Amino acid sequence: MINEPRAGRPRASSRETLAEAACELFLEQGYGSTSVADITQRAGVSRSSFFNYFASKSDVLWSGLDARIEQALTAISNLGSDAGGAELRAILVRVMTDFAPDPLALALRNATVMGLEEELVRDTGLRQARLAAGIAEAACRADIGAIRADILGAAYAAALMSSLRVWAERGAGSGSLEALLNEAMSDVHELPWRI
């Protein structure tokens, strides 16, 4: 018996279809005025399909970066006690490598139109704090004092999140995100990993 293809959208495209529908609606009517039901109706999929891909409306914006941050935190937690700033910076650059324009970049560029300013500040802060804590823990394992480790964690996390914001605001196709991050991290170099 030959298997017939299943009806409906291919699984790989439903996520992108939902994200595209969400971004269109956020631009048209604002983030706060857009419901999950609006998004699923625009995308032509069921509510359960939405929750197969996203935990919340906010997750539409952040899921791509969150996956990259999770990979970075795993790599950072695996740094040995002899690790230095170069190893950390390489991990952070991988977060931004091949980062294509996505719903988050669109939201950062159009935050005012989408009514997302407060949401983005809060959600950026959560991710920045999480990344800073992971970096600070790695610094402590490398025998860096707690205060200096916290400062380094905050500085590197801010460099990453700020680079992403500036890149998106300039227009994601206008330059290299990795170059922006490397420039930002060179500013952090004034706080050397080791004294």
Score class of each variant (00 low, 15 high):
R109I: 07
N110H: 13
A111M: 03
T112I: 13
T112R: 12
T112A: 11
M114Y: 10
M114G: 04
M114V: 01
M114Q: 08
G115E: 02
G115R: 01
G115C: 01
G115V: 03
E117G: 01
E117Y: 03
E118V: 11
E119A: 14
E119F: 15
L120F: 01
L120C: 02
L120E: 01
L120R: 02
L120V: 03
R122T: 13
R122M: 08
G125C: 04
G125A: 04
G125N: 05
G125Q: 06
L126P: 00
L126N: 13
L126G: 14
L126A: 13
L126I: 13
R127D: 07
R127E: 05
R127K: 00
Q128A: 06
A129T: 08
A129W: 09
A129M: 10
L131K: 06
A132Q: 00
A132I: 00
A133L: 13
A133S: 14
A133D: 14
A133G: 10
G134F: 02
I135H: 02
A136H: 05
E137W: 10
A138I: 07
A139F: 01
A139M: 04
C140Q: 15
C140K: 14
C140D: 13
C140T: 14
R141F: 01
R141E: 03
R141V: 07
I144H: 06
G145C: 09
A146V: 01
A146G: 13
R148H: 14
R148L: 11
R148N: 13
R148M: 12
A149Q: 06
A149G: 09
A149F: 05
A149K: 04
D150Y: 08
D150P: 07
I151S: 14
I151Q: 15
I151L: 15
L152K: 04
L152S: 09
L152Y: 00
L152F: 04
G153M: 02
A154E: 11
A155G: 10
Y156P: 05
A157V: 04
A157I: 06
A158V: 09
L160N: 05
L160T: 04
L160K: 02
M161C: 11
M161N: 09
S162R: 11
S162G: 15
S162M: 12
S163D: 05
S163C: 03
L164T: 04
L164E: 08
R165M: 10
R165V: 06
R165Q: 14
V166E: 09
V166A: 09
V166D: 04
W167D: 07
W167A: 05
A168F: 03
A168G: 04
E169H: 03
E169S: 06
E169D: 10
R170M: 14
R170G: 11
R170D: 15
R170S: 12
G171C: 01
A172T: 07
A172L: 08
G173T: 10
G173I: 07
